[in-house]
Design a protein around this nucleic acid. Structure first.
Length: 931
RNA sequence: GGGCUCGUAGCUCAGUUGGUUAGAGCGCGUCCCUGAUAAGGACGAGGUCACAAGUUCGAAUCUUGUCGGGCCCA
């Protein structure tokens, strides 16, 4: 018996394949990568789409600093999947990756590395070090991105520090200058003392700090007139009470701001046997006086803020008269409702100062120390020490009403992590509210975003619009070395030379020699071929020291890349795809230069994704045990797994990830791989024959399901909902193939004569399934899909000789016909499976092959056409119809029929052939056909 | 504090214009198979749809608020 069993087993058509179950991605992916490089896959792909319409996804440049992290991995993976899909769909998809190379973080890093030596070094030397650093990390990141299977022009990426790119950035600048939007002005800006530079909004980080805040009484300058005006008959000192979290800014106080509509109370109180009257917002009297208990305050009068306008007060420790001004931003949330205003030390204060014609007074030097215009007890002191000194002085003068510790969020320099100050400095700006061609840049940007760009998700429009509405003029200057110099010259009268032509003259030099030329060349040399006129004698010119905000450089990439590389690329790009933080960053700061320079948006579509967070949905830091180290995870699990992991996440919101989640996600990858492998393993002897498949069959059902899959997956890819594409594909493998079709087909695949119609037809369907699945999965699991492709026999005409699945085209629907009987069939299947389960539990029928499924006769006309499918779909050994039955019924046949020793199906036709008494009729035929 | 945004089973996601006992896959548990075998199959247990009010005959779905998360600002 046991020997017979073995003999019969050898007559089966069991699955065979050299496609390994174990992926060994970590080991195999680099080999395949090498293969792609050797065959020039990227170039071949472009070549093969030579005449196709282009789809240009313009890469936002990551900063050339450090290893790639999950944010990079996610972003680049999404880009690659979308581009590969578009390519599959027939588009030409050139992709030029880039890096943001200039900027503070690198200079900061070099500064740290060099320590003291940094200060003694010239700009050229520092810049050389920075260049090397940026080059090193763009190379490292390039390797890491390529390891992920990101396809692109890696041999020719764009680097913002390259001479041609710099020249192109200057060309953008020249056009902005041409449109009259560039100006220089004293402005109060965030200032980093540590780095001695102005900072962009994007360079600020908010951290909670505890500050010593003070309530200070500023005596009115003319108490007699004041009392008379407000009818106060009391021998008391009269003052205005302000509150500040930054006492060190008090030396620069020039005004006190009140809200015109807020009620202000004149509060009388007695302290040390003297009467005082002080002005505080009515709503805050109680709160303020709890800071200095026991004074028994009483309100003697209440007036609107507007009545206080123009009142003069005496600065407590500087010989200066200040005045009360109106401002809308004054609130009664904190403080006193009277806002200390130092136009040189705060952005709102600055606005107020401009409006009221105040001096933009800033007595603080770049190093954070008070200058000589301050009282001598402050001169030379740092502002942080100034806090204490000022408070002491106030106490000494008897104007310090109260002190209070206060925790609030305060801006810090994002690199040095030190608190910033606000300081008035000379800066270059791009004007947002100056009309060009009848419309300001701000208006044009808002209109463009509304009418010419699509945002995915749609709320991106509202987000960027809100930012455009409220943002101030763009400060484009920085006081550093590592960046693109702002090409301005000054004559001896300190007048700036800045014309489109002067900028272009410098650009020409940069294009040849790089921006180091700014430091090595004379003005005359830099301006060669340009005549600035008699006011600007070339030999008397001085060069600007400031460099550009790096955002101006990366924001000019549409010029430096898209336009510069036409016709391979085109402007505007079809798609920009970055994290949602770039609404304020790259999206906005690419839009503004593009509109300012050429009047067109750089993108048609803007797609954003959320951020990687921890498994608890919270922001995650490197020190967290759940932190995912991208490079490490790729080396542990392989790029395909990480790619697939990214694809399954709905990237509209935040995306949770942890090493454990990635590890567990391996199950999903293995499901796909095993399914593909199963299909492959049953095609080893497929002869390539094709069939007209009837709808009334599982084969027909499968083809229809495939059509659905193609449609669903394509729609998901088209709408960039990759997680829906993934789910459709995964569930198809798990349900349609693994659980239903593949399971049902085992009997005929293994036991039928190799060339039987049903077996071949099944192979035909499986073959189609495999090709479609492999193609649809190929944008996601680029390595695995290619590996599968290599194993597929009888590839379609036209794709036979393609060396990679990535050179093929999207599968098309087959318009497979639908059968009305399917829903009935699957309804019955559910019922049968439940009955089989009961039979197993109650009667020990462990194998469905030992049972017979009996369908009610009333279904015969609808189901009979399915033939043997009717037993295979539930794994039974036999099926029949019975007119007397009302419901489908499963019956234990262990005592009734004999089991076929070959197919294990228990059925009445076993033993009919004397030569093979232990086989069913079909198996007899199969065995005979072999000899 | 402000703008935008997210919150459905352990996990990743579906839930169309508000309408029957809220679904899927995975994971988990139990069992089966041992001819997809470091695979495969069946069954089952898991959710007060963040919370609270409101609109409605009826809300995961609409409104408001609260709580919690994220990004960007202040």
């Amino acid at each position: 018996m046991s020997s017979d069993k073995k003999v019969y087993k050898e007559t089966l058509n069991l699955p065979q394949t050299s496609f390994p179950m174990e992926a060994k991605l970590v080991m195999n992916e680099p080999v395949r990568l090498k293969k792609w490089q050797d065959m020039g896959l990227y170039q071949r792909l472009l070549e093969s789409r030579r005449n196709a319409p282009k789809f240009i996804l313009h890469d936002g440049p990551p900063f050339a600093n450090g290893d790639i992290h999950m944010g990079h991995l996610t972003n680049k993976t999404l880009k690659d999947v979308i581009l590969r899909y578009k390519s599959l769909a027939g588009f030409s998809t050139p992709y030029v990756p880039g890096w943001d190379c200039h900027g503070l973080p690198i200079e900061h890093k070099i500064q740290q590395d060099l320590g003291k030596a940094f200060r003694e070094m010239g700009a050229i030397e520092v810049r050389r070090k920075c260049y090397e650093y940026a080059e090193k990390y763009s190379d490292i990141q390039s390797q890491q991105f390529q390891r992920l299977g990101i396809l692109g022009d890696w041999s020719n990426p764009y680097l913002t520090m390259k001479p041609e790119y710099e020249a192109n950035t200057l060309e953008v600048f020249a056009r902005v200058v041409e449109n009259g939007l560039v100006y220089k002005q004293l402005k109060t800006v965030p200032w980093s003392i540590a780095n001695q530079t102005a900072l962009a909004d994007a360079e600020l980080e908010y951290q909670d700090v505890e500050d010593q805040t003070v309530f200070v009484e500023f005596p009115v300058a003319n108490p007699g007139a004041f009392k008379a005006r407000f009818d106060l008959r009391l021998n008391a000192r009269v003052s205005l009470m302000i509150w500040t979290t930054t006492p060190w800014t008090l030396p620069a106080n020039l005004a006190i701001a009140v809200h015109p509509q807020i009620d202000y109370a004149f509060v009388k109180y007695l302290k040390n046997e003297h009467w005082y009257i002080t002005v505080v917002a009515a709503d805050l009297v109680e709160k303020v006086f709890t800071k200095s208990p026991g004074l028994q305050p009483s309100v003697v009068r209440t007036v609107k803020g507007e009545e206080l306008g123009g009142i003069d007060y005496q600065h407590p420790f500087v010989d200066r008269i200040g005045k009360v001004v109106m401002a809308d931003y004054v609130t009664t949330t904190d403080g006193t409702g009277l806002v200390h205003t130092a136009p040189g030390h705060g952005e709102e204060d600055y606005e107020t100062g401009i409006r009221h014609g105040l001096e933009i007074y800033c007595p603080v030097l770049p190093n954070g120390r008070f200058d000589s215009t301050t009282p001598n007890w402050l001169t030379g002191q740092s502002v942080w020490d100034g806090n204490k000194l000022v408070v002491e002085k106030l106490r000494e003068l008897g104007v310090l009403f109260a002190e209070e510790k206060y925790v609030h969020s305060y801006p810090h320099d994002w690199r040095s992590k030190t608190p910033i100050i606000f300081r008035a400095t000379e800066q270059w700006f791009v004007a947002l509210d100056k009309p060009i061609g009848g419309m300001t840049l701000r208006e044009r940007a808002l209109q463009t975003v509304k009418e010419q760009c699509r945002f995915i998700p749609d709320w991106g429009r509202a987000r960027i619009s809100g930012m455009l509405e409220s943002r101030p003029d763009w400060c484009i200057s920085r006081q550093r070395s590592w960046g693109l110099p702002i090409p301005v010259f000054y004559n001896e009268k300190n007048q700036p030379l800045l014309t489109p032509e002067s900028v272009r003259a410098v650009a020409k030099v940069f294009r040849e020699s790089g921006s180091d030329a700014w430091y090595t060349h004379t003005p005359a040399r830099l301006l060669e071929g340009y005549d600035p006129g008699p006011d600007f004698p070339k030999d008397k010119l001085r060069k600007e020291k400031d460099i550009f905000d790096v955002w101006f450089e990366s924001g000019s990439s549409w010029m430096g890349v898209l336009k510069a590389r036409e016709p391979q690329l085109h402007f505007p790009a079809d798609l920009y795809l970055e994290g949602s933080d770039q609404h304020r960053g790259w999206f906005q700061l690419s839009l503004l230069p593009a509109l300012a320079a050429v009047g067109q948006p750089p993108f048609k579509n803007v797609l954003t994704h959320g951020f990687i967070v921890g498994p608890d949905g919270k922001k995650i830091s490197k020190s967290d045990k759940n932190y995912v180290t991208a490079v490490q995870e790729v080396n542990r699990h392989g790029a395909d797994l990480l790619r697939l992991f990214v694809c399954q996440l709905d990237f509209e919101g935040d995306m949770a990830a942890s090493p454990k989640m990635i590890q567990e996600f391996g199950d999903k990858y293995r499901k796909l791989r095993n399914t593909l492998r199963y299909l492959l393993s049953n095609l080893y002897d497929y002869d390539g024959s094709t069939f007209d498949v009837p709808a009334d069959s599982l084969d027909g059902w499968m083809l229809f399901e495939l059509d659905q899959l193609v449609q669903e997956t394509t729609e998901a890819y088209e709408s960039y909902t990759l997680h829906k594409a993934f789910r459709a594909l995964h569930d198809f493998c798990a349900v349609q193939i693994s659980s239903i079709y593949g399971n049902a087909m085992k009997d005929r695949l293994y036991c039928d004569p190799p060339g039987s119609l049903l077996r071949r037809r099944c192979q035909y369907v499986m073959h189609k399934t495999l090709i479609i699945l492999t193609k649809l999965l190929s944008p996601m699991i680029v390595f695995t899909a290619d590996e599968v492709w290599e194993h597929i026999p009888h590839k379609p005409e036209g794709e036979k000789d393609l060396p990679s699945v990535h050179l093929t085209s999207l599968p098309r629907g087959m318009n497979a016909p639908k059968s009305e009987a399917w829903s009935l069939l699957f309804e019955l299947r559910e019922e049968v499976l439940l009955q089989l389960d009961r039979l197993k539990k109650e009667q020990g029928v462990n194998k469905a092959l030992d049972a017979e499924v009996i369908y009610p006769g009333k279904f015969k006309s609808r189901l009979a056409g399915f033939g043997v499918d009717l037993e295979d779909i539930v794994g039974c050994g036999y099926h029949s119809f019975d007119d007397s039955l009302d419901r489908v019924t499963v019956v234990d046949r262990r005592q009734v029929y004999r089991s076929c020793a070959r197919s294990w199906k228990r059925r009445p036709d076993v033993g009919q052939d004397p030569q093979y008494p232990d086989l069913s009729a079909r198996d007899v035929q199969a065995v005979r056909s072999r000899t």
